[in-house]
Design a protein around this nucleic acid. Structure first.
Lengths: 136, 136
DNA sequence: AGTGCTTTGGTACTTTAGTATGAGTCATCT
DNA sequence: AGATGACTCATACTAAAGTACCAAAGCACT
């Protein structure tokens, strides 16, 4: 957060400086007004692109941040989450068990608990809800 | 495509016009150079944002276009695709049947064919593959 | 009119999924 | 030390999902 403020502060400062410089350059005749205007145009053009990318990127990281919080809110444990990932990868209970080195019975227990916590009736619905909640 | 060229042409024309106008405005003293520069800055700032959004949006529609082609390549029929959507929504065969007003038996047939066409062992895997193929 | 494809539906059967219940282990917290 | 919660596993069921095979209706194309 502090970094963002610093970057923006420097950005605005730089732009104001450029602003003043170009104004005096034009008035004093040191610089052709075409060049000054062109520089301003190009700079602001890229500033526009930069800020746009920044804000879009922010949204992405925001939704990724929601993940962990939501998982905790739903009281999904570490192991249950691993099972959830297995489900979303299209694995069977048996395959998930082999992947995590535990029995199929245990997977069934985890899946059952997951369905309750995600308020889903089936594993396919669990996938859909988990995606909606941005936890996978 | 033609529309894009038209928009860009008009955009460039407008910017050039603005450019010339501001130059003459400054030279003739009709307008304070600050204002001219400010206008240029603001305009190019938004042009930067606009072009950025445009290019990002283009990528999205591109991936959406892949959809239909891939569905045909995989020889997935209209009805099968509707069933696939039902699966991805987390519905049971029975629920999909009720949604499409056909029997559960028929859904099972469609699902079975879908699994072969998508090279999946389970409906959950079908979801994963369908997402990978950008067909849902 | 015949061919091919999609869609529909059914029966019978096998395999997964999911529920309910109980129980043991282990680490952590109080 | 005892409570708590996460993880493990098993048995016994019930409910879905999936497979295999067959069959018929409808549509488009030639």
């Amino acid at each position: 957060m502090k970094k963002t403020i610093l970057v923006f502060g420097l950005l605005i400062l730089g732009l104001l400086l450029l602003f003043q410089l170009s104004k005096y350059a034009i008035l004093s005749g040191d610089l052709e007004s075409e060049y000054a205007i062109a520089i301003i145009a190009v700079v602001f053009f890229f500033v526009g692109i930069y800020l746009n990318k920044k804000s879009l990127h922010k949204n992405n990281t925001d939704t990724k941040e929601v993940n962990q919080k939501r998982i905790k809110e739903l009281e999904i444990s570490e192991r249950e989450y691993e099972v959830l990932i297995g489900i979303s990868e299209g694995l069977s209970n048996k395959e998930i068990g082999e992947k995590l080195f535990i029995s199929e019975s245990t997977i069934k227990t985890h899946v059952s608990n997951l369905l309750v916590k995600l308020n889903a009736k089936r594993r396919t619905q669990a996938i859909q809800i988990a995606k909606q909640e941005h936890i996978i």
